[in-house]
């Protein structure tokens, strides 16, 4: 393990048995997250990006591979993990509507982690107020119920709950995808400010590349359970290597001319994402790839490092 890495994922696998066959939702991915950075995972539906976060957090038990948190291996699912670990790792979910119990007041929701971990005993109320202020919500919200507040505000409450136990790592699973852009801006800025203040590490998951550009320090792109390219954010957007990255970038709806210039022009999106039950052989992207070669359908490419910190999994670079 390298100094300063808070989370290391090695060859992580998570398979699900379904009626149609085995779904390899996450199929052998490796990456690491440095302390204080935001590592972004982008991908379309079925890419396994959310499953990756859920497996790291322990909602699912991994089928294979290893996860290290602060140098120690994480074993099994959430039920087998020690309480101290749950204090240190938290998660914010995609749908703010379902992440807060409709039958509980905001106070009960925020105070739950304090009670479970026996923190701030006797001062729970003060801490809850402090947390609400931290995410920029008025303290009067404490006595309200989730249905009485808006979607963006619910998400801020969910963030306050995640922060309650002073974790050092938070997994953010599409935290703004259900919200409007102005609320999104507020939440993202809140998250970035808190990250600065508390030196948090984020695993940020989204399908929105434009958002990723503004949030992540490093980005990994997933397709059908595999990581295809990992690079520092600026390089990822200015010098994309993998044809899939280029295809995604070319499909992003943008509003300014400067952005238009960043979009790869030659590649247009085509084809559909195959069913995860019938993953194509070889490179999983080859049926949609505009630069598909003979070898692509036969042999799976390996991840290689093109430049320091920039790795890609494609036969174009595997010569």
């Amino acid at each position: 393990m390298v100094e300063g890495e808070i989370l290391v994922v090695e060859d992580l696998r998570k398979y699900f048995k379904t009626a149609q066959g085995v779904v390899r939702a996450v199929d052998g991915i490796s990456f690491s997250i440095k302390e204080g950075e935001t590592f972004g995972l982008v991908g379309e539906s079925g890419s396994g990006k959310s499953t990756t976060a859920f497996t790291i957090m322990g909602v699912y038990e991994p089928t294979g591979g290893r996860i290290f948190f602060k140098g120690k291996p994480l074993i099994g699912g959430v039920k087998k993990r020690p309480l101290s670990l749950k204090k240190d790792m938290q998660m914010v979910f995609q749908d703010p509507g379902s992440s807060l119990n409709p039958r509980k007041s905001i106070r009960e929701i925020i105070e739950l982690p304090l009670k479970v971990h026996k923190l701030y005993r006797g001062k729970e109320r003060k801490r809850a107020e402090e947390l609400l202020r931290m995410v920029g919500l008025p303290v009067e919200f404490l006595d309200r119920y989730p249905r009485a507040i808006g979607g963006g505000e619910k998400q801020l409450v969910a963030i306050a709950r995640a922060l309650a136990t002073e974790p050092s790592f938070i997994a953010l699973d599409e935290p703004t995808s259900a919200l409007d852009v102005s609320m999104q801006a507020k939440i993202i800025n809140t998250l970035l400010r808190i990250q600065e203040e508390l030196n948090l590490s984020y695993l940020f998951i989204t399908h929105n590349l434009s958002l990723m550009r503004n949030v992540a320090s490093r980005v990994g792109i997933m397709y059908l359970g595999k990581l295809l390219e990992v690079a520092p954010a600026s390089e990822f957007f200015h010098k994309p290597l993998h044809p899939y990255t280029k295809m995604l970038l070319s499909s992003v709806p943008v509003i300014t001319e400067e952005e238009e210039k960043l979009k790869p022009k030659k590649i247009v999106s085509r084809g559909e994402i195959p069913s995860p039950v019938n993953v194509p052989p070889g490179c999983t992207f080859h049926p949609r790839c505009p630069e598909c070669m003979e070898v692509c359908s036969k042999k799976e490419p390996v991840m290689i490092e093109i430049e320091p910190g920039h790795t890609v999994k494609c036969h174009l670079f595997n010569s």
Partner: peptide, 26 residues
């Protein structure tokens, strides 16, 4: 499978709490 139950599990609340205080009222 609702996120609020998963959130309670990730926080470390015990199963009885989750069953009776998170799920049952709903």
């Amino acid at each position: 499978n609702e996120y609020f139950v998963q959130a309670a599990e990730l926080i470390g609340a015990n199963p009885l709490y989750i069953m009776f205080r998170e799920i049952l009222p709903n």
